[in-house]
Write a protein that binds this DNA or RNA. Structure first.
Lengths: 217, 217
DNA sequence: CGGCTCAATTTGTGATCACTTGAGGGGATG
DNA sequence: CATCCCCTCAAGTGATCACAAATTGAGCCG
């Protein structure tokens, strides 16, 4: 099956973990449309494993809210209601504002440079209208910043929220007609440079909630 | 099989779900000491199921951070570092302050009465020095309030944090020599009655972080 | 008396299979 | 033409087994 080189941490990874990671990435990056159905046998066939590891991966993702299990056990990506989306956006704001706050005193020039580079890629994805690429690099931008917060539990929660929003995000950003580069990311970088905590908090809050405006507003 | 009466929501529940719920409750209420080892075959034996549903329950709990899986797959309850505990406490503060804020405008007299009744039970548990009972009723107090926030995703996250703190909480509260009733709960109730949002936020923050003082301070 | 080695045993992993249930389609009926 | 019913097949659940890895404890040597 997949004979491509794997990153070190994936070397000799158990089957269920391989499947889990592959599906997780797909979902988080919006590569699966909301409401799409999955089957354990289908997943097993695709990754060349039996139903057992497929089931473990699916249940793990369901526990994280990335997949929806119907009462009869059928598996699909969740179709979020507007209320749910708003709530998850509020969670993003809550968690990510805190994470950025904690990262601020630890953010040195090397980090800011790296963020600017990633942001360049984000802008590129926007102009190319590559939705999946945009989501991926956008999340990389945020994760890079939040890693500096040295708060693994909080970051894990934020990623769980991203995961839940994944399938919906694609549809959401698909409506974005804008081709202008991410303005809020620039504000975040500027606030980091200036050591301006209130400005940073505001910029992060705006960035994580802006995608929602066009849905609810 | 298991012919004992089950609660309504457990009726005809799949085996893996029964096991999951039973273990989850045990962990959240602090009935398992940190670092305790579990085995799939042992769990299967206890609940009279095979390894398969035991594995699903364990992996689901591991995904929620309630169990720790060693690199070799061995299962145990996590032993949290002080940094981790502080971070989880910060998460509790963040999430629960927000939840209480959202619950405030919806908190009518019936809810406040119910909170006062639960709080009576909490006080009773304190005087009886019943650690598990204390944790259970204390969480019931918080959950009852937060349910009014109408924010299921946020509440689920808060419960995940409780779950992660479960095994540690017992040890934590075991050090509490106090037999005085929960003062912060009274402040919460008072703030709810008065419709005092800043006071409520402060009281909730104090309540969820107080247990930590004796650890870090 | 303490540390090391090796083997027996415990434990997780993954495949396979029997069983049951629920979803979806096709046809008959009003 | 719509609705309802039944039937079939697909899909999840859970048990069992073979296998590999790791743990543990006994026995031995220093």
């Amino acid at each position: 099956m997949n004979l491509t080189a794997r990153s070190p941490q994936d070397a000799a990874a158990p089957a269920h973990d391989r499947v889990y990671r592959a599906l997780r990435t797909r979902i988080m990056h919006g590569e699966i449309t909301p409401g799409a159905a999955l089957t354990l046998r289908g997943i097993g066939r695709e990754f060349d494993v039996s139903m057992t590891p497929a089931r473990e991966a699916v249940r793990r993702l369901a526990a994280e809210g990335a997949l929806f299990l119907s009462s009869s056990g059928r598996v699909s990506t969740p179709e979020l209601t507007n209320e749910r989306i708003e709530e998850l956006a509020a969670l993003r704001a809550l968690l990510e504002v805190e994470l950025s706050s904690r990262a601020l005193p630890r953010a040195h020039m090397a980090l800011i440079d790296r963020l600017q580079m990633i942001n360049g890629t984000v802008a590129e994805m926007v102009t190319k209208r590559d939705a999946v690429g945009y989501i991926r690099t956008n999340l990389e931008f945020h994760r890079t910043l939040y890693l500096r917060a040295q708060a693994p539990a909080m970051l894990a929660m934020a990623e769980t929220v991203w995961l839940q929003l994944g399938p919906t995000m694609r549809a959401l950003y698909g409506r974005l007609r804008r081709t202008d580069p991410p303005q809020n990311h620039r504000l975040i970088i500027a606030a980091l440079k200036a050591g301006d905590e209130p400005g940073l908090r505001l910029a992060v809050r705006s960035d994580v909630t802006q995608g929602l405006r066009l849905l609810t507003g």
